[in-house]
Each structure stands twice: as structure tokens, then as C-alpha cells.
């Protein structure tokens, strides 16, 4: 009835009312449909991102587990192949026949056994130091890095130097260890893959941000390479760096220097995050 009346040609107001209302309704329904579809699309996109992040975390977790297992195997091999035979040899010198030997031979056996036990002590100390460097624990990151770089320089294969510009206040011990492990991993990679003739490490701060930069003149990685390797199955060490940085909520950037001669790796941390985690753990 309303429709018929509205569509009669002599009723202009009714036409306006009819088409106006229909138009508004169509616009409203269109808007609702658009919003629903748009929202669904956004949700799907977010879910995809979440899934990708979960995959990435899984890869990092696998990498850290694998690394842990490798480390355990290395320690087991060191103990089994080195400490085991040494102690077995020492035992041979001090066997049951020991009391039946003449005094001179006894003294020689004791001396040899002592030598072997000293070697074993040194070996175990080395293993222990590789697990937790005492310099890092007692004197902090600066001393531990200097120590590491001195050892590298001392080997003669590469010139390594480090300079800490602003490290009056030490980071938390566990964070220092994580940073030290990252530096170790990076230096290890440079030694293995880059053919560099020098490494230089600098530390500085800007406000609450804490920076560590590594320069070297060998073949290096760019950020693209790092991200690609991070997603692939290879590059266990890099994944380990990623997972360690995740703990610190830090960032890492791989780039070529402005002069295009050197490669630069920058580790960036926020000291506020460290304070937050410290408060959180309290």
C-alpha cells in the first residue's frame, strides 16, 4: 500500500521518502557487510601473523635445545676422552703392585700420578671456565670481553681489541652472561667464516639504551642474510643469538659500514627493560 502510493507519479514527497529510505537502508547494510568482512580479514591476517610467530619461536626453541645437547655432548666427550684416560693412567701408576715396588720406582710413580692429576685438574678447570668464565662472574662484562679478545690476539691469527666507553654500572649478572655468549657467538662466526684481519668491539650508552658494536674487515652478514638464515634450518648459532636476545628484549642489526669496507654488528638493549625485569623478579 505504502509502496504503491509512493510510486505514483504525482506524489513527489512520497518518492523522495521511498527512495531515500531504501537508499539509506542499502547504504547501512553495505556498511555493516563491509565492516564484518574487513574485520574478518584483519582477524585472519592477525592469526596468520601469530602462527608465523609461533613457528619462529618453535624454531628458536629447537635451536636452543639442539645447542644445549651439543654442549652437553661436548662436555661429555671432554670428560670421557680426556679426563677419563688421564685418571685411568693415574690409577695405573698407583695400582696394587705399588707397595711391592722399590722406593725409587715408587717415588717416580707418585710423581707421574701427581703430574697426571694436575693435568686433569687443569682440564676440568678449563671445562668449568668454558661453562662460566670466572672473569665475567667476578669482574664483569668488560674484563671478560677484554680477556677473550686478548686470547684471540695472542693466538696471532687476528688483531682483536675492545673499548668500553660507558660501563660504570654493571648489568645484572645473568644479562651480562647472555651478552657475553652473544659476543662469543659473533666472534666465533667471524673467526670461522669471515677471513677478517681485525675485530674491534665498542660499547656505549645513549640515554637508557645500551649499545655494543662489532666491526670487522672480513666477509660479513647483512640484516637480510641474518633474517633469511634465522628462518632457515641452518644457522644454529644465529638462532641462538636471536633466542638469547629475545630474553633480553634486545635488537641486533647487521650492516655494512658507511665506507662499505667494514661489516658492523650492533646489539641494542634497553636498560629500562632490565630494570623492569629486575623489579618483576623481585
Amino acid at each position: 500500500m505504502v509502496l504503491l502510493q509512493a510510486l505514483s507519479p504525482d506524489n513527489n514527497i512520497s518518492m523522495v521518502l521511498f527512495f531515500g529510505t531504501i537508499g539509506m537502508l542499502a547504504l547501512t547494510i553495505g556498511l555493516i557487510v563491509f565492516i564484518s568482512f574487513h574485520q574478518r580479514k584483519v582477524i585472519r591476517y592477525q592469526q596468520q601473523l601469530q602462527r608465523m610467530e609461533q613457528d619462529q619461536q618453535k624454531t628458536l626453541l629447537n635451536a636452543s635445545i639442539r645447542l644445549q645437547e651439543e654442549e652437553r655432548q661436548r662436555i661429555a666427550a671432554d670428560l670421557h676422552d680426556d679426563a677419563g684416560p688421564l685418571l685411568a693412567t693415574a690409577r695405573l701408576y698407583l695400582n696394587e703392585n705399588f707397595v711391592n715396588l722399590d722406593k725409587q720406582t715408587q717415588l717416580q710413580s707418585i710423581y707421574n700420578a701427581k703430574q697426571i692429576i694436575d693435568d686433569t685438574i687443569q682440564l676440568i678447570r678449563n671445562i668449568s671456565h668454558s661453562l662460566m668464565p670466572p672473569t665475567l662472574k667476578n669482574f664483569g662484562l668488560e674484563s671478560a670481553v677484554n680477556d677473550l679478545f686478548q686470547k684471540i690476539s695472542g693466538s696471532g691469527s687476528m688483531n682483536a681489541s675492545s673499548r668500553f666507553h660507558d660501563y660504570r654500572e654493571r648489568l645484572k649478572a645473568e644479562n651480562e652472561l647472555i651478552i657475553f655468549r652473544i659476543i662469543q657467538e659473533l666472534v666465533n662466526n667471524i673467526l670461522k667464516h669471515s677471513n677478517a684481519s681485525f675485530i674491534h668491539l665498542t660499547q656505549n650508552t645513549s640515554g637508557q639504551r645500551f649499545f655494543i658494536r662489532l666491526h670487522h674487515d672480513g666477509r660479513g652478514l647483512t640484516q637480510n642474510d641474518f633474517e633469511k638464515l634465522g628462518k632457515s634450518n641452518v644457522g644454529l648459532g644465529l638462532k641462538n643469538i636471536q633466542s638469547r636476545l629475545k630474553v633480553l628484549q634486545g635488537k641486533i642489526f647487521f650492516e655494512k659500514d658507511m665506507s662499505q669496507t667494514y661489516y658492523k654488528v650492533t646489539i641494542e638493549l634497553n636498560r629500562e627493560d632490565e630494570l623492569k625485569t629486575a623489579n618483576g623478579s623481585n
Binding site: 514527497i13 523522495v16 521518502l17 531515500g20 547501512t28 556498511l31
Partner: peptide, 17 residues
């Protein structure tokens, strides 16, 4: 929104009816 869409034009021209 649907209520406004349905009644807006009616209210615009109500005084002319």
C-alpha cells in the same frame, strides 16, 4: 544504525506531509 536509516528521510519530510 538501521533505525536511523529507516526513519531519517521520514523525519526530514515529516513537516511537509
Amino acid at each position: 544504525l538501521l533505525y536511523v536509516a529507516c526513519t531519517l528521510f521520514l523525519f526530514i519530510i515529516a513537516n511537509h506531509l
